[in-house]
């Protein structure tokens, strides 16, 4: 392992250039909230993923979470499990996904390159396979901005954190409704990019309504930390986006988007265009929830 860890200043400088950090800073400055869709890389093939990424970018999302499929996703519900299985059957790998990401950044076939922040999300094993150090370097070189690892709590994240920061990537940490206040504060204090708020207990996609207890929890996390918050779990409609972004900076939508894309893809001959169209129209609909959220509220001074 590389032991020449960068100094704090160097890390801060590295993250100064990080697309996700820059985007979140700009949003804060302008008082904006954003939408961050989750996509399983290679669901429908990487060509589809690339086309959907471009569509989401055009629609005006703030960032994207790109899932690297894993054979045993214990934190995911049936919809995202199935997406992972389809992606693996299509032969999706981390290396292939990074190649696609490089193409997204550089532009190809008439499409311009993009600066949309992209966070890679997965489980420990597929990322650990090449070692944290190599994985982080490769993700950064391909144009990734953050790593989100569903089964890597702060306690086990030491080496990933060091490797990510040295590569100029944000290591993202989680808080959940079961997390103690002290632990929320600690996670907030070391968070880079955003803090991932698991909105309720349960696997992804288990419930499709953004409920009151999630709102209370978000308000509580907001009190504990200044860090930008991204909330996942239970976002499926524009009104959920409005609710989610009352306290959070980013609303994440995964299961509902995946389900719509898959439905469209399986009902149409041209599944690529169908996926792109379904993703685009759904996300544009969700983005209307942000317009509502942008109406100034008395208690918001951002």
């Amino acid at each position: 392992m590389n032991s020449s860890a960068k100094s704090k200043t160097e890390i801060q400088n590295a993250l100064q250039q990080n697309r996700l950090c820059r985007r979140l800073r700009d949003m804060r400055r302008q008082g904006l909230k954003g939408l961050a869709p989750y996509l399983t890389a290679g669901d429908g093939g990487l060509e589809t993923t690339l086309a959907v990424l471009r569509e989401l970018d055009a629609a005006g999302v703030a960032a994207v979470e790109l899932g690297i499929p894993f054979s045993d996703p214990i934190a995911d519900g049936p919809v995202l499990q199935a997406a992972s299985e389809r992606a693996l059957q299509a032969g999706t790998t981390l290396a292939g996904t990074l190649e696609m990401l490089r193409e997204f950044r550089q532009g190809s076939r008439g499409a311009a390159g993009s600066d949309l922040p992209v966070a890679l999300m997965s489980y420990t094993n597929p990322l650990l396979r090449r070692g944290w150090w190599n994985t982080c370097q490769e993700v950064a070189q391909a144009g990734g901005d953050a790593l989100i690892v569903a089964d890597l709590p702060v306690e086990e994240s030491g080496e990933m954190r060091e490797a990510a920061l040295s590569a100029g990537l944000c290591p993202v940490h989680f808080v959940a409704p079961t997390t103690s206040e002290e632990r929320i504060r600690q996670a907030g204090a070391i968070s880079c990019g955003f803090l991932y708020v698991v909105g309720r207990v349960g696997v992804t996609g288990a419930r499709t309504q953004f409920d009151a207890s999630t709102q209370d929890f978000l308000a509580f996390v907001r009190q504990c930390t200044e860090a930008p918050l991204a909330v996942g779990f239970g976002v499926a409609a524009a009104k959920d986006v409005s609710e989610a972004t009352r306290h959070a900076d980013l609303a994440i939508v995964g299961t509902a988007l995946t389900a719509r894309m898959h439905k469209a893809a399986s009902e149409n001959q041209d599944f690529l265009s169908a996926s792109v169209h379904a993703a685009g129209s759904f996300v544009r609909d969700l983005l209307r929830g942000l317009a509502v959220a942008a109406v100034p509220e008395p208690d918001q001074n951002s």
Binding site: I74, A75, T124, A150, D151, L152, P153, V154, E155, E156, H173, F174, V175, A176, P177, T178, T179, R183, V198, V201, G202
Partner: peptide, 22 residues
């Protein structure tokens, strides 16, 4: 970390769990 006793056997073991389960 958050645990009172050592989660490892040598280098093996640990607590690779989703935050909800911590």
């Amino acid at each position: 970390g958050v645990m009172e006793t050592n989660p490892r056997f040598g280098e093996f073991g640990g607590v690779f769990a989703p935050e909800t389960l911590m």
